[in-house]
Simulated scan of single mutants.
Amino acid sequence: MRSPTVRHRRLGRELRRLREQTGLSPEVAAHQLGWSRSKLNRVENARLLPSAEDIGNACDLYGVDSSGKAGLIQLGKDAGKRGWWTAYSDVFTGSYIALESEATAIRMWEPTLVPGLLQSEDYAREIICATRPELASPDIDRRVDARMARKINLLGSHAPTVHALLDEGILHKPVGSPGLTARQLDHILQVAAWPNVTIQVLPLAAGAHGGMEGGFSVLSFDDEDPDVGYVEGPAGDVYVEATDQVRRLMLTFERILNICLSPEKSAELITAARSEHDLP
């Protein structure tokens, strides 16, 4: 199964809404469509992309007019289009990149390392080598290329807004050979100057805070699509879609933001930290 895109999620929600609007239970609708109950559930939850014929049959059952039917069939076709990330399907095995590529706003909190979207090539290579020591050199190169390709999403007229909160400890942590961290901090300062990117630092003096349990991201889309939270860890990826859980992540983000330095003060701190890494 390909990673669900925003359009795929939208299609599933719309088919569920139409079914519920007609008053049909999942069991009755699945029976009349000739589907299993499992298939209906996977379609409505964007775990399975239905064919144009499946969408048309569902629209007929739910009493959708011809224009609405055509629109949903087209939405299904658009949802099935291959994105740039599918060229790296061996690296991007989850849904995050598909969703990130269609987000209009990305909020992230990172307490331990520079987030992937903000990493320089050398820093990314060092992090991948440290966290995946079992990988051969060609596999490491492949992952570095994929991570650099993600950054294309930050450029252009349709680029999302990115608001990154970083723990100050990241700035002081030496990574790789002498000078590598300094170059990474230079890169952060360059990206922070882009009009769609805001970077703020949580100072060590802030003490205990709500983000100490780990990093996370929240992706926002247009008005039709709910936010999605994302937490990455050694045991795998966790996608947070329940409204109350996403709200909790957003509240945590706001609490961390309230004790971060301003973007201007953050840039000064990053610049000061950079000088620590100049010496061999």
Score class of each variant (00 low, 15 high):
residue 58 A to L: 09
residue 59 C to D: 07
residue 25 S to K: 11
residue 67 S to W: 07
residue 35 W to K: 04
residue 42 R to E: 11
residue 39 K to W: 02
residue 50 P to L: 05
residue 68 G to E: 10
residue 50 P to T: 05
residue 43 V to L: 02
residue 38 S to A: 15
residue 36 S to P: 04
residue 35 W to I: 03
residue 45 N to H: 15
residue 59 C to L: 06
residue 33 L to W: 07
residue 47 R to H: 13
residue 35 W to H: 05
residue 58 A to V: 08
residue 19 R to L: 03
residue 41 N to M: 08
residue 58 A to H: 12
residue 50 P to W: 04
residue 57 N to Y: 00
residue 20 E to K: 13
residue 34 G to R: 06
residue 51 S to Q: 06
residue 64 V to D: 01
residue 53 E to W: 05
residue 27 E to F: 03
residue 43 V to I: 15
residue 60 D to V: 08
residue 19 R to K: 06
residue 34 G to W: 08
residue 28 V to P: 00
residue 34 G to A: 06
residue 53 E to L: 12
residue 52 A to C: 01
residue 18 L to Q: 14
residue 38 S to I: 11
residue 58 A to F: 11
residue 63 G to Y: 06
residue 63 G to A: 03
residue 29 A to E: 03
residue 21 Q to F: 02
residue 50 P to M: 03
residue 68 G to N: 09
residue 23 G to M: 05
residue 47 R to D: 11
residue 70 A to R: 14
residue 23 G to F: 07
residue 36 S to C: 04
residue 60 D to K: 14
residue 18 L to G: 01
residue 45 N to G: 03
residue 28 V to N: 02
residue 70 A to H: 09
residue 32 Q to W: 10
residue 67 S to T: 15
residue 58 A to C: 12
residue 66 S to G: 00
residue 23 G to N: 06
residue 22 T to W: 00
residue 51 S to D: 10
residue 34 G to L: 08
residue 27 E to K: 12
residue 67 S to M: 10
residue 25 S to R: 13
residue 32 Q to G: 00
residue 22 T to Q: 13
residue 67 S to Q: 15
residue 25 S to M: 03
residue 65 D to R: 11
residue 47 R to C: 00
residue 56 G to H: 09
residue 26 P to N: 10
residue 57 N to G: 13
residue 59 C to N: 07
residue 51 S to W: 01
residue 43 V to M: 05
residue 35 W to C: 03
residue 64 V to S: 04
residue 54 D to M: 10
residue 46 A to N: 06
residue 38 S to M: 12
residue 28 V to C: 00
residue 42 R to N: 11
residue 35 W to E: 04
residue 30 A to E: 07
residue 43 V to A: 04
residue 30 A to V: 08
residue 35 W to T: 05
residue 44 E to H: 08
residue 19 R to D: 05
residue 52 A to Q: 12
residue 63 G to W: 05
residue 67 S to I: 11
residue 39 K to P: 02
residue 42 R to Q: 14
residue 40 L to E: 02
residue 59 C to W: 08
residue 62 Y to E: 03
residue 36 S to F: 05
residue 70 A to P: 02
residue 34 G to I: 07
residue 46 A to P: 10
residue 24 L to R: 13
residue 40 L to N: 01
residue 66 S to E: 15
residue 43 V to N: 03
residue 33 L to H: 05
residue 23 G to H: 05
residue 62 Y to I: 04
residue 60 D to F: 02
residue 53 E to H: 11
residue 35 W to Q: 03
residue 61 L to I: 10
residue 57 N to Q: 15
residue 18 L to M: 13
residue 49 L to W: 06
residue 48 L to N: 10
residue 33 L to F: 05
residue 30 A to D: 05
residue 51 S to I: 02
residue 68 G to C: 09
residue 45 N to C: 02
residue 18 L to W: 14
